[in-house]
Simulated scan of single mutants.
Amino acid sequence: MDLRTESPFWLMNSGIVRSYPSIKQSSSTDIAIMGGGITGALIAYYLTQEGIPAVLLDKRKIGMGSTCASTALLQYEIDTPLGELTKFVGEKNANQSYLMCIEAIEKIQKITQSLASDVGFSLKKSFYYASGSKDVKEIETEYRLRKNIGIELEMLTKQDIASLFPFSAPAGLLSETGAQIDAYLFTHELLNTSISNGLQVFDKTEVVEINHHKTGVELKTNYGETIKAKKLIIACGYESQGYLSKKVVDFNSSFAIVSEPFGNSNLWHQNALIWETARPYLYMRTTDDNRILIGGKDEPFYNPEKRDKLKDKKALELQKAFQKKFPDLDFRIDFSWAGTFAETKDGLPYIGQVKEHPNTYFALGFGGNGIVFSQIAAEVIRDTLIGKKHIGTNIFKFDR
């Protein structure tokens, strides 16, 4: 599956961080993980922390699928507003989903503090604004619902927004919880830690056949070697849909640009994450070296050739949209890329098992805050494997 165009910022910025071998001999293990992006890396981290033997395989070089193209905003806010999510999954599950995302950001922070190298993590406030007057009611509803379950945020009026930002919006929510990260570096540092705890990592190794047995699974690779495992975890991102007979996601094309570095490190109010109520939405964040990253202008299709041809046009549209809101900042495009983006019917991830694949778990952290969902998926799957109950198991199951 063609996941992205060439030259995403994070890959160009960091290059090949570490090298991993391709598989050279057959072996047996407790857990086989398919997918060497951020999702697979988080799962491997949690399993090896428990002392569970695992092997991770990726057909590409590690982190070079969707992970290096991620814009890596860490939000507790789900693409589906809390009020709308309640209609899909009920009030209890909707509230718990939002609260779990807050906890996930806090847990990611703790993990980054334990790693040997900096992975660009920083806490940020999150500013969610009404794109038009018709969306003010949604902002008011979201403020009430989130406040009722203890989420720390404040509602901003048009006058409040004008005093903090150089653009106008009829209303908005400024939340205390949010963060940003370099998902590509984070993936490599997670794996580095996990390797020291016994994880085996093989990239450029494609699984070409999966055979399910009563006592486990057997994976055959493109090199002819086999991996026998008691359990299989599929964490292949958007390509995971190919292992399911039932469609669970819709694929879109998304676009992003990054500016040249600015001399000033304070680019807007507390360099908060910024996004809006419109769908598809425009979103913004900063980077550690004072760049601005903008994403959005999504198109509802998966067609790599068509997507790639739109990249330059969409880059200019994103630049113009930014300049309209921040006329005093001279945004000059340094990097631009396009990628595949997937969303589910309710905006929540799919985590767990399906009957057609025994001894197999899926970690599908789709949506605008996929890294946060991947953190939750890693915990859910770990807890399941060690016989511990996790509140997310029923919320994110396939037959919800």
Rank of each mutant, 00 (worst) to 15 (best):
F373H: 09
N271A: 07
T187F: 06
D79C: 03
V119F: 03
I233R: 02
T360M: 05
K61N: 10
D288H: 13
R279I: 15
G387C: 07
G40Q: 00
S168Y: 14
K297S: 09
K246T: 10
A69V: 00
I181K: 00
N252G: 03
Q200I: 08
K388T: 13
K214R: 10
D288W: 11
Q200W: 11
G347V: 06
F362E: 02
I234T: 08
S22H: 12
G63H: 00
K311V: 06
G368R: 00
T157N: 09
D399M: 07
G392V: 10
H390W: 14
A229D: 03
L11G: 05
T39Y: 02
K345M: 07
G83F: 11
Y76T: 00
R291T: 02
L82P: 02
T205H: 04
P261L: 12
P8Y: 08
T393G: 03
K306Q: 14
Q375C: 13
L267C: 14
K314N: 07
K306D: 07
F373Y: 12
S240G: 09
G367P: 04
I376Q: 00
I105V: 15
E103A: 15
E77T: 01
R279W: 13
R60G: 05
F127G: 05
K309M: 13
T340Q: 15
I108R: 03
E209A: 09
A44T: 03
E138P: 00
A363C: 14
L57Y: 04
F331N: 04
Y128N: 06
P166I: 08
E299I: 11
S259D: 11
S70M: 00
F255E: 03
L115E: 01
Y129C: 06
I16E: 08
Q96R: 12
T29C: 05
A338W: 01
I391G: 08
E225C: 11
I371L: 09
